[in-house]
Write a protein that binds this DNA or RNA. Structure first.
Length: 412
RNA sequence: CGGGGUGUAGCUUAGCUUGGUAGAGCGCCUGGUUUGGGACCAGGAGGUCGUAGGUUCGAAUCCUAUCACCCCGACCA
């Protein structure tokens, strides 16, 4: 991609509407623009990050045996009345009527719909277990949307639902999803904790939240350095770790980006969703559900990794991995070399800053957008060398022209 | 929904108290000089002052209503 062609309207100053750093930087880097409170347009850089997060989630879930589906956003009220959530969900549910005055809502989550599919299409224990997921826009009329895409009314979410014949089978899949989520967040490069949580309106039994550690996180969490134990502030019972006796708990803040639930039979009983077991007896499905906030994951990455100059993307979800910057756009030799290197690299992950203008302006934009690798073609070219500068560490390497492509590819 | 606050050019904002020509910086356009961390000079475009009423000879400024947005609280990926 050529920078002169890329639609990334960067802002030099902080927009007044943004309070937290990820919101400010997503606006300044030209990733998002607001349409209404809690409703955001994704521009090319923002969409690319969302797609990279989605792809990692998709790869790991597929590998874990889940199957991707795509459910409607527009949902008839009948299913919601079956479980009682038409009333329980309250004002947070976006309700609409069609021309015949039939009531619908815009999907905030899809337990009812997936359970309806299961009861209509799964009859035998032999068809279990199964885990179905989708990556889709969700709607929740939040009481107070805030912090950009961190808490918006329209947002991208991955939601998965599993169906089981036995409690043991649910436990096994829950553990499978637990591990899968760890792989997903490890791949992105997060520092995170898994804490026991309140299930809220989802209901059911046990649930755990994945919290990305960041000073600006909305929730206070406590964790033990010795073992994996972590807990959110409202559930904390003592100052010491219950597993490692006497060890005191450390306090930090986190952003919830994932939540896994053991639902049990709450929805299947409410909706009479049953299968026949090996004794020809009708049994309600035992269910689990597993969510990840995709947009929030991108915002959390920025909260966790940024500096005064801008975003420091982890390699795995950077919108582009490399930017090539000729120091002087009027210098023909530098431009020829920049284009040659651009030609030798993967265009899908590389931006060539071919704009006229001074080096400082281009580097400021590059640091704001957060490309992990800057390739600067400047003064050292006379000595047959090109500069590689890493966004995260600031480390600078002078590399001989002949080795530059190999060197860059080694860093990806 | 309760409490607090803000709406002036694409962005950041001055002007409002005390009514009388809408101003700046950045960005944008044209020309020139520049080119290693957001350059400089010259010229230029861009404004229903959130909206609707009212007071007044005259309203960005005063009054009323209304809308939008932001922050704190309950909710959540």
């Amino acid at each position: 991609m050529k920078m002169s062609h890329l639609f990334a309207p960067t802002l030099r100053e902080d927009p007044g509407e943004a309070e937290i750093v990820s919101h400010k930087l997503m606006l300044r880097a030209g990733m998002i623009r607001k349409l209404a409170a809690g409703v955001y347009s994704l521009l090319p850089l923002g969409l690319r990050v969302i797609q990279k997060v989605s792809n990692i989630i998709r790869e790991e879930l597929n590998r874990a045996g889940a199957q991707e589906i795509f459910l409607p956003v527009l949902l008839p009220s009948e299913l919601w009345k079956e479980t009682g959530r038409w009333d329980v969900y309250g004002k947070e549910l976006f309700r609409v009527k069609d021309r015949h005055d039939r009531e619908f809502c815009l999907g905030p989550t899809h337990e009812e719909i997936i359970t309806d599919i299961a009861r209509n299409n799964i009859r035998s224990y032999k068809q279990l277990p199964i885990n179905l997921y989708q990556i889709q826009t969700k709607f929740r009329d939040e009481i107070r949307p805030r912090f950009g895409v961190m808490r918006s009314r329209e947002f991208m979410m991955k939601d998965a639902y599993s169906f089981h014949a036995t409690e043991e089978c649910l436990q096994k899949e829950y553990k499978n999803m637990y591990d899968t989520y760890c792989r997903i967040f490890d791949r992105i490069g997060f520092k995170y904790k898994v804490v026991n949580a309140d299930s809220g309106i989802m209901g059911g039994g046990f649930s755990q939240e994945y919290m990305v550690l960041a000073d600006t996180g909305e929730e206070e969490i406590f964790y033990c350095e010795e073992c994996a134990y972590a807990v959110s502030s409202e559930a904390k019972k003592s100052d010491n770790c219950p597993k490692c006796e006497g060890k005191s708990l450390n306090k930090t803040r986190g952003i919830e980006i994932g939540h896994i639930f053991q639902l049990g039979t709450k929805y299947s009983e409410g909706m009479k969703a049953t299968y026949l077991d090996e004794n020809n007896e009708e049994k309600p499905f035992i269910m689990g559900c597993y969510g990840i906030g995709v947009g929030r994951t991108a915002a959390a990455a920025i909260e966790q990794s940024h500096d005064k100059d801008g975003i420091i993307w982890p390699m795995a979800i950077a919108p582009y991995k490399v930017v090539i910057v000729p120091a002087n756009s009027e210098d023909p030799e530098q431009m020829v070399m920049a284009k040659k290197i651009y030609g030798d690299l993967n265009h899908e992950e590389t931006v060539l800053d071919d704009r006229p203008g001074r080096l400082g302006m281009k580097l400021k934009d590059a640091d704001l957008i957060g490309f992990p690798i800057k390739v600067i073609i400047g003064k050292a070219l006379k000595d047959g060398k090109i500069e590689i500068k890493l966004r995260k560490s600031g480390e600078v390497k002078l590399v001989e022209i002949g080795k530059i492509v190999e060197e860059i590819n080694d860093l990806l």
